[in-house]
């Protein structure tokens, strides 16, 4: 048997520059690209081109009712939209709805998550039932609320609103929209938060109680900090989603009485007004706002963009 001793060389120069990729590696790259190509092509074709096209349209006067007057107008559309009080009302309404409903959802969602996580009886039942609002078509739920708050037909209107018709007044309408939105999306929030709760080790909570923390302190000092990434992701998802609110408003008020959201405004300009130039301008503005919200969440709060982790790669 040979006994060898190797003097440890301090550094070794790489030999022969770049090594050719082996067959396996090349095949892996090819396969990777091949597998992703269809998904990437579809996504880019249906979003990339239209986005570019919509920016182009937003710089034109283009009304389908008067196609002959189509012309390049630069930023005129933006000036028109941004100096329009309807736009700002809709923008304010959207922001209000987003902030209030997401805030309520966070509180309720956290409560629901804790219930689903900790309940001693009927855990399966609670989890199943909670998914119902998530699964139900938004329009269906919106109709349910609509009828509930319609005078005479609706038990809620009859019971709570007296003689008035809440869906014909601005503030009651807004609160009903928030109610519908919160009901529908709290379960989703709760599920995301529950996944975060599952990451809080039981031992940590036990240790905290041994250290003398009461239930509220355990929640605020241990659970919430550990769950922070999950909370931020849930908030990011829901904020961006809430900002696109459309279905509920469409059914509940059709945007009457200053309850219109920016998405409603865009829809009205496009489908009802057939004004592609203004519609596109609004689209671009919504897109910019959403990008800003995402930017604030990711850069300022340090939300981990979902899917960005490469943890499971190798």
């Amino acid at each position: 048997m040979s006994q060898t001793v190797t003097e440890a060389p301090a550094t070794t120069e790489p030999r022969g520059g770049k090594a050719a990729l082996s067959e396996g590696k090349k095949a892996e790259r090819r396969l990777g690209l091949l597998l992703c190509a269809p998904a990437a092509i579809v996504m880019l074709a249906v979003t990339g081109y239209p986005i570019a096209y919509s920016i182009w349209l937003s710089l034109q006067r283009y009304d389908l009712r008067f196609p002959a007057e189509r012309q390049f107008v630069g930023l005129d559309n933006y000036v028109a939209v941004l100096s329009n009080s309807y736009w700002w009302t809709a923008f304010g309404t959207t922001m209000f709805l987003t902030v209030v409903s997401v805030a309520i959802e966070l509180v309720l969602g956290m409560a629901l998550a804790l219930i689903m996580h900790r309940t001693l009886v009927g855990r399966g039942l609670v989890r199943t039932v909670t998914l119902v609002p998530y699964g139900i078509v938004t329009v269906v739920a919106a109709f349910s609320w609509f009828y509930a708050w319609t005078p005479e037909t609706g038990y809620l209107a009859n019971a709570l609103a007296g003689d008035g018709a809440p869906l014909t007044e601005q503030w009651p309408s807004l609160w009903i929209i928030i109610l519908a939105e919160v009901w529908k999306t709290t379960p989703f929030m709760a599920l995301l938060l529950m996944a975060g709760l599952a990451l809080v080790p039981d031992d940590l909570l036990k240790a905290a109680s041994m250290d003398g923390a009461n239930a509220w302190q355990r929640f605020t000092k241990v659970m919430v900090p550990v769950m922070k990434p999950a909370i931020l992701v849930a908030l990011l998802f829901r904020t961006l989603d809430a900002f696109r609110i459309f279905d509920n408003i469409f059914v509940l008020t059709k945007g009457a009485n200053d309850t219109s959201s920016v998405s409603m405004q865009t829809y009205n300009n496009l489908i009802k007004g057939l004004n592609l130039g203004i519609g596109s301008t609004m689209s671009v503005l919504i897109f910019i706002t959403v990008a800003l919200i995402a930017f604030v969440f990711i850069k300022v709060f340090g939300t981990a963009a979902p899917g960005s982790d490469q943890g499971g790669k190798r």
């Binding site: 790489p14 030999r15 022969g16 090594a19 990729l21 082996s22 067959e23 396996g24 590696k25 095949a27």
Partner: peptide
């Protein structure tokens, strides 16, 4: 095993170069 590439040098199995062989 062939699960990672060899950057340089040679792996011989039974006297035959195996660097580029799939696992």
């Amino acid at each position: 095993a062939g699960l990672e590439d060899i950057s340089s040098g040679e792996l011989r199995i039974d006297g035959q170069r195996a660097n580029e062989k799939a696992p």
